[in-house]
Simulated assay, not measured.
Amino acid sequence: LGMSKNQCRVSLVSGVVVLSAVAVILGTVCSSVLFDKVQTLDLTGQNEHTFSTEYSLWARDENAVETEDAENTGVLKVVIPAAMTVLTAGLSVILVNRNLKQEPIELLSARVE
């Protein structure tokens, strides 16, 4: 109470953006650490990870095998969290604007009949 609509909008949206940014950063860091640990984990007891491509039709053609670029994964670790934060901020602006269509004092003074 006592805030203008813009002040209320900034207050609510900034809180949501800060919380979502912290959650996205924490989730990204934790998933990167866990993914790196899983990649180095040897579950088979062998020193070298091998698998049979005997029944894989795609493996018969040597040109059909594609490798993943390590450069693309670094970009994705930045782009996806940034997109999540922007999406959350945009959604929170839309929802806050919808809730601020009516004056807060009118909402508090309305009687339930």
Results as ranks from 00 to 15, higher is better:
A89T: 12
A83Q: 12
V78D: 04
S31C: 11
N99F: 11
L76P: 11
T73E: 10
A89I: 07
T44F: 07
Q102R: 13
V10T: 14
C30H: 01
G74Y: 05
L107W: 03
C8L: 15
T28E: 11
T67W: 10
V96S: 00
M3Y: 04
L108A: 14
S32G: 13
N47V: 05
Y55I: 12
A83D: 05
L1Y: 14
I80H: 08
T28K: 01
V65C: 08
E48A: 03
E62D: 15
L41D: 12
T50E: 14
L100M: 12
N63V: 08
L76S: 10
N47L: 06
I105W: 11
E71C: 02
I94S: 04
A82L: 14
V22R: 14
L107E: 12
V16I: 11
P104T: 01
Y55L: 15
I105A: 10
A110V: 06
I80Q: 08
L57V: 08
K77M: 15
L95C: 01
A82D: 10
V24G: 05
T28I: 04
A21I: 01
L100K: 01
Y55M: 12
E66R: 04
G90C: 12
T67V: 06
D42A: 02
K101D: 05
L12R: 11
L12G: 01
A70E: 09
L107P: 03
S11A: 14
I105N: 11
L43I: 15
T53E: 02
V79R: 04
Q39F: 06
S20H: 06
N72V: 09
V78W: 14
V33I: 09
S92H: 05
E103S: 02
G2L: 01
L76K: 13
V79N: 10
G2C: 06
D61N: 08
T40P: 06
L26Q: 04
S109T: 15
A70K: 02
R98C: 13
Q46M: 03
V78K: 11
T85E: 13
V75W: 10
D36T: 09
L87D: 01
R9G: 04
L57M: 05
N99Y: 09
K101A: 01
K101N: 09
N6P: 03
A83R: 05
A59R: 04
L87I: 00
T53C: 14
A70Q: 06
S4M: 00
M3G: 10
E48L: 08
V29E: 04
V29N: 07
N47M: 09
D61I: 00
G90D: 05
V24S: 14
K5V: 13
M3I: 02
T88A: 13
A70I: 02
A70S: 06
S4T: 04
A59D: 09
V17G: 00
